[in-house]
Computed example of a mutant assay.
Amino acid sequence: MHAADEPILKIRELNKQFGTGCTRCSNSADRQLDRNYCPVCGTVYSCRDISFDLYPGEVLGIVGESGSGKSTLMKCLYFDQEVTSGEAILSVYKDGSFNLFEESSQQKRYIRNQLMGKVYQNPVLGLRLRFSSIGNIAEKMIAAGSRHVRTMEERGSELLTKVHIPVYRMKEAPENFSGGMQQRVQIAKALSNNPPILLLDEVTTGLDLSVQASVLDLIKHLQRELNISILLVSHDLGVIRMLADRTLVMLDGQIIEQGLTDQILEDPQHAYTQQLVHSLL
């Protein structure tokens, strides 16, 4: 499907562990774990040798139960957490010849502000709930170097209109908004600097079904209009089915299956994926 394209993002052998490891668990070849946890020293191996490619204009879904490592993976990609080891190459950053995880904190801030946007499951992490909605967007633009107030106001109102926040509420603080509206403000903020990559972490969890549907419709529409690459984490296969071109299935910190979304939903190979798919039917 994307044979001619170079991936926009390549992740290779990403590892994230919490704890120092011990003789029983630190050798990856014969590591003896209880799921992703070492019962001897208590180290948790949240992400284990995660490798994948994300292509331009593609929506890549990551699905798995709570504790499978998918949210930790997203935190590592957005530098909310440090990786233990691994490589991330972004084709639009320094000709794709640098490992993002080894860049300085200043460069990581630049990548976060200019080249990626993230929408968090909990709006408290992605928004200042007491700032105005338009102020939230301006904040991300200022972080990326914007200084022109009128430009920021125009961009802010354009984006908030796009995500269906009425003009008369743009100066209002998101703390007064419903959950669905808060997520839409987060989406507008994440898009403020036209990033080529958008990270969406469980963005519809906790929303009513009708609100979920409208947020998903909005994401689908924006993705097509802007041809943005999206990494979409969810434990809900319905969300993945609606949005993702390809899907990775995670369990206990590892990718256990990957392929075209339709193929994974129609003909799952791994026992865990089969269980997931049958629970959806």
Rank of each mutant, 00 (worst) to 15 (best):
G180M: 09
Q182K: 15
F52P: 10
T23L: 14
H148E: 14
S26Y: 12
L125K: 12
S71T: 15
R35S: 10
A143V: 06
D49N: 15
I142W: 00
A88F: 01
P268N: 13
L243E: 03
V277M: 03
M141C: 05
I137Y: 06
E154I: 13
G238P: 00
E225Y: 03
D201K: 05
C25A: 13
T23K: 14
I256Q: 04
I219E: 03
F131T: 02
M1T: 04
S234T: 12
L243N: 06
S157I: 03
A244K: 04
R130Q: 10
A144H: 01
E153L: 11
T151H: 14
S46Q: 12
L237N: 10
N176D: 09
V92Q: 05
E202G: 03
A138I: 10
H270E: 15
D95Y: 00
I187P: 12
V203L: 07
N99F: 07
T84F: 03
D49K: 12
A271Y: 02
K162Y: 01
L209T: 13
S97G: 00
S214E: 15
C22A: 09
S28C: 01
P268S: 09
S132G: 15
G67F: 06
I137E: 11
K162T: 08
R48C: 13
K94A: 11
I50F: 04
H235C: 04
I219W: 06
R155H: 10
I240Q: 08
E153K: 14
I230L: 07
L115K: 06
C47G: 08
P166S: 14
R112G: 07
I62Q: 01
L54I: 03
I255S: 11
M170E: 14
L9K: 10
V149K: 15
T261C: 10
Q223T: 14
I230P: 06
A213T: 12
L276G: 04
E139V: 09
L276N: 07
Q81I: 01
A29Q: 15
A173E: 11
V167I: 12
R184G: 04
R35P: 00
Q274K: 15
S192L: 04
E102H: 13
E139C: 08
I219M: 08
V277T: 03
G69I: 00
E58K: 03
A271P: 11
Q263W: 00
P196F: 04
I142A: 09
K118P: 00
L199G: 06
N227P: 05
L115F: 10
S157L: 03
E82I: 03
P174Y: 08
Q254I: 05
I11V: 15
L200T: 04
E202R: 05
R109I: 01
D217V: 02
T20S: 15
A188N: 09
I219K: 12
G117D: 01
V167P: 13
E6S: 11
L280R: 09
L226F: 11
I255R: 03
G67P: 00
G61R: 05
E257S: 10
I165A: 08
V83R: 03
Q81E: 15
Y45R: 13
Q81H: 13
F131C: 01
H164E: 11
G86N: 07
D217I: 03
G19D: 11
S210T: 15
F177D: 01
S66Y: 02
S105I: 05
G156C: 13
